[in-house]
Design a protein around this nucleic acid. Structure first.
Lengths: 225, 225
DNA sequence: TTTTTATGATAGTATTACTATTGTTTTAAA
DNA sequence: TTTAAAACAATAGTAATACTATCATAAAAA
């Protein structure tokens, strides 16, 4: 089955909508490729233009700077995950099953379903892990936030928090637990591959064990109060 | 009571030991001041030299680049927190009390004990929150890790994990729970002040409520298995 | 068919992230 | 006490980054 998937992102992120033109789509596609290959710090618009290929000036007509482009990619990522969550918990009755499904979707496995977007989902997942938090961890955060650029992330967390509330209406920290779950799913995956002493999954590097940890964490918190 | 506190950090982080000279100590002091004021991205060695005051060239004789300097600061921070944890859980019998003490030390409160180092502890805490994860979230991570630069962070997590093991020897994810706790303590504090919809502490911005969340999270996980 | 818009090609600027050199001061060893 | 070594200031310079500006051309819309 091929599912069409379109997201409209906050237009304060770009000068020209990259989704409207072929060259714009290439900026997105190739920036995902390049950032996942060389890392966000080494990435710049000159290298991107070379890769597309186009000119640096053209890239600057779409995005003010590489930070805005990164936020665009990460927003897309969160919106996409949220879509998958909505789609997959839709027909589930039990909140516990919904939670397990959410955790399964948050952690990449090589048999993960990919959709017919022209975007390299796995590369984008790696960027989200390594660079996602850089979108907001800066002095710019309050200004960016005024422009609503973190809405996709918030909406995903809200959705997850609402499932937590469904599971246990008495639980007082649904939002914090949701953002902690989302962040931990990324960070523990990163640790599993790069800083194994900070986690307990180094031996087999099995995402399923990471999921077990997260399930224990979430249900432990929700059942504890 | 005034407690003297000295830490020797990994010498692959610097070219000349900043702890050995007055100008070196100023590099540390003033970089903490500057980074906490203008943010890591806007910070550079030219501005730092101006602040000290010294020349840019002199700063480069101590640190290769600003990323290494950041790691130095963050390593110092983790070593310092670990020292505080060791000191404060030393005379506690109950593992549960130790855990509550650890969580209390991880979350900044304005009545937090500060030590007679010449370092602005609160400014360093803010840098650790906003920039701490930038030390390892890059393509450089594996090379840096080979040089042992993340040891202070690992040692803190190991210490915390050992307390978890003491509390519940059956628990399988002590390391992951430790790193998740440490990261969540920072991130939820950041959300409390900048992205309130991602947490549940926005109303009163009370660190004590954040501590409650973390305690529930940790004991929930540890009691669940 | 004319006008608008997007892109390519090119050039240029300010800032960043360094490296190199040389003379002077401070510190340490002889 | 003298001498040598190390540290620092002052200055200059380079390569890369992060943009901005201009103008010609091609494609699309009116």
């Amino acid at each position: 089955m091929q599912i069409e998937f379109k997201i409209k992102l906050n237009n304060s992120l770009f000068l020209r909508d990259p989704d409207g033109t072929e060259i714009g789509k290439n900026i997105i596609r190739k920036s995902i490729k390049l950032i996942s290959e060389i890392g966000y710090e080494q990435f710049n618009f000159k290298k991107l233009a070379l890769e597309i290929p186009t000119t640096e000036a053209t890239v600057y007509r779409y995005f003010e700077n590489k930070h805005k482009l990164l936020i665009y990619l990460i927003d897309y990522y969160w919106a996409f995950i949220r879509y998958q969550v909505l789609f997959n918990i839709n027909n589930l009755k039990s909140p516990a099953d919904k939670i397990r499904t959410i955790i399964d979707l948050l952690v990449w496995e090589d048999n993960s379903v990919t959709y017919s977007t022209d975007i390299d989902q796995k590369a984008l997942y790696y960027i989200a892990i390594t660079d996602g938090s850089k979108t907001f961890l800066s002095k710019e955060v309050d200004n960016l936030n005024k422009n609503q650029v973190f809405v996709p992330y918030k909406e995903l967390c809200e959705l997850i928090a609402s499932v937590f509330k469904e599971y246990n209406p008495e639980y007082k920290f649904s939002n914090s637990l949701a953002s902690t779950l989302v962040e931990a799913s990324h960070l523990q995956y990163f640790f599993m591959h790069h800083l194994p002493r900070l986690c307990d999954f180094a031996d087999h590097k099995d995402p399923k064990v990471l999921e077990l940890f997260l399930e224990n964490l979430v249900f432990g918190a929700l059942d504890n109060q």
